[in-house]
C-alpha cells in the first residue's frame, strides 16, 4: 500500500509538473485515521496530501461528471476496478471523453468497512466491505499506468443476498422490500454517488411536472428506489456504492444485482462497464431474444 502511495505521488507530481493534467482526483487522510475521503490536487506542491490505504473505498468516477476542464485539458485520477468501470460507464454514456483522462490504475484487494465503528473497535482489524466481497473486477479495466500487479477476483458474495431473497415466498418478499423501502430517508445519496445516474437534471427534482412527490412514505420511497433501479438496469457497474453510502442501510445493491442476474440468464453473461466495445443487452434487439409475452 505504501509502495502504491509513493508511486501515485511520483506520477501525479510528474503529471502536474509537466502540466499534462489540470487536476488529480485521489484520496487524502481524513479527520480520523480510518477515514480516507476523496481529494482534489491541482498543484505539484500538494502531492504530499495524497495517500493510498485500506480505507480508499469510495468510487471517484462520479466526480468526473462535474469536473470543469477547458478544451485540451486533462484530468487524472486513481482508479480501482470499480472506479475504472465507473469511468467506462461515463465514457459509454457520452459524459466524459477518454482522451481527457489520465488513469492511474490500482488493482484492489478490497477495502475496509468503517460504517459501523464504535470506540471499542480496533481500526487495524476491520472487516472488508461487503461490496468488495462481491467484486468481479478488482483490476482496473481501463488505465494509462498500472501501479501494481493484477489480483485475482473472488466475488464469493456476488449473488448471495439475491439468492436468499429469491427463496422467499411472494408475501415474504413483499414484507422484506416494504421493510427496506420504509427505512429510506430520501437523502438521494445513492443517486448522487452512482456513476450510472449521470442525468444532468433528475426527474426527481422536476417538481412542477410532478413526476414524483416529496412525501416520505412507503409508496413514494418504493417508487423512487425502483424507478432508479430500472433506470440503471443494464448499466449498473456493481460498484456497490449505493449501498455503501446509504445511511439507512437499505439493501440497494440486491435490487441491482437481481436485475443483473436476470439479464445474464435472459441475454447471456454481461458485465456493464468492462468493455467499451460490448453492446449493452438492453439497448439492442436481436431476433432470437427471449420473447415470453408471445
Amino acid at each position: 500500500m505504501k509502495k502504491i502511495e509513493e508511486m501515485i505521488k511520483k506520477q501525479v507530481y510528474d503529471l502536474l509538473e509537466k502540466e499534462e493534467i489540470k487536476c488529480f482526483i485521489g484520496f487524502e487522510k481524513g479527520q480520523l485515521p480510518f477515514y480516507s475521503p476523496p481529494a482534489f490536487i491541482t498543484e505539484a506542491g500538494q502531492i504530499e496530501r495524497l495517500i493510498w490505504d485500506d480505507f480508499c473505498g469510495a468510487n471517484l468516477s462520479k466526480y468526473l461528471l462535474n469536473a470543469v476542464v477547458k478544451p485540451g485539458e486533462k484530468i487524472g485520477l486513481a482508479a480501482k476496478g470499480c472506479d475504472s468501470r465507473g469511468i467506462l460507464r461515463l465514457i459509454q454514456d457520452n459524459q466524459v471523453k477518454r482522451e481527457n483522462l489520465i488513469i492511474l490504475g490500482v488493482p484492489c484487494r478490497g477495502m475496509k468497512d468503517v460504517s459501523n465503528l464504535t470506540v471499542e473497535d480496533n481500526f487495524n482489524q476491520l472487516p472488508t466491505m461487503e461490496k468488495c466481497l462481491a467484486c468481479t473486477n478488482p483490476n482496473p479495466v481501463i488505465y494509462d499506468f498500472l501501479l501494481d500487479e493484477k489480483v485475482e477476483a473472488n466475488p464469493q458474495k456476488r449473488f448471495l443476498k439475491v439468492e436468499e431473497v429469491e427463496k422467499l415466498t411472494l408475501d415474504d418478499k413483499y414484507a422484506f422490500w416494504s421493510g427496506e423501502f420504509e427505512k429510506c430517508i430520501r437523502c438521494y445519496a445513492c443517486r448522487n454517488i452512482c456513476p450510472a445516474c449521470n442525468c444532468r437534471s433528475c426527474y426527481l427534482e422536476q417538481h412542477r411536472v410532478g413526476w414524483h412527490g416529496k412525501a416520505v412514505e412507503l409508496a413514494e420511497n418504493a417508487n423512487y428506489i425502483l424507478t432508479r433501479a430500472i433506470h440503471v438496469a443494464g448499466r449498473c457497474i456493481e460498484c456497490g456504492e449505493c449501498e455503501r453510502v446509504c445511511p439507512a442501510e437499505l439493501s440497494l445493491s440486491t435490487i441491482n444485482k437481481k436485475i443483473i442476474k436476470d439479464i445474464n440468464s435472459l441475454f447471456g453473461e454481461y458485465n456493464a462497464g468492462v468493455n467499451l466495445e460490448d453492446k449493452q443487452p438492453l439497448c439492442y434487439y436481436h431476433s432470437d431474444d427471449p420473447d415470453e409475452f408471445r
Binding site: 482534489f40 430517508i185 437523502c187
Partner: peptide, 16 residues
C-alpha cells in the same frame, strides 16, 4: 469552491 468539490450534494448531513 475547494471544499465543495468533494460534496456529493446529497441530503444526508442535513437529515441526520
Amino acid at each position: 469552491d475547494d471544499l465543495s468539490k468533494r460534496c456529493l450534494r446529497c441530503g444526508i448531513c442535513t437529515y441526520v
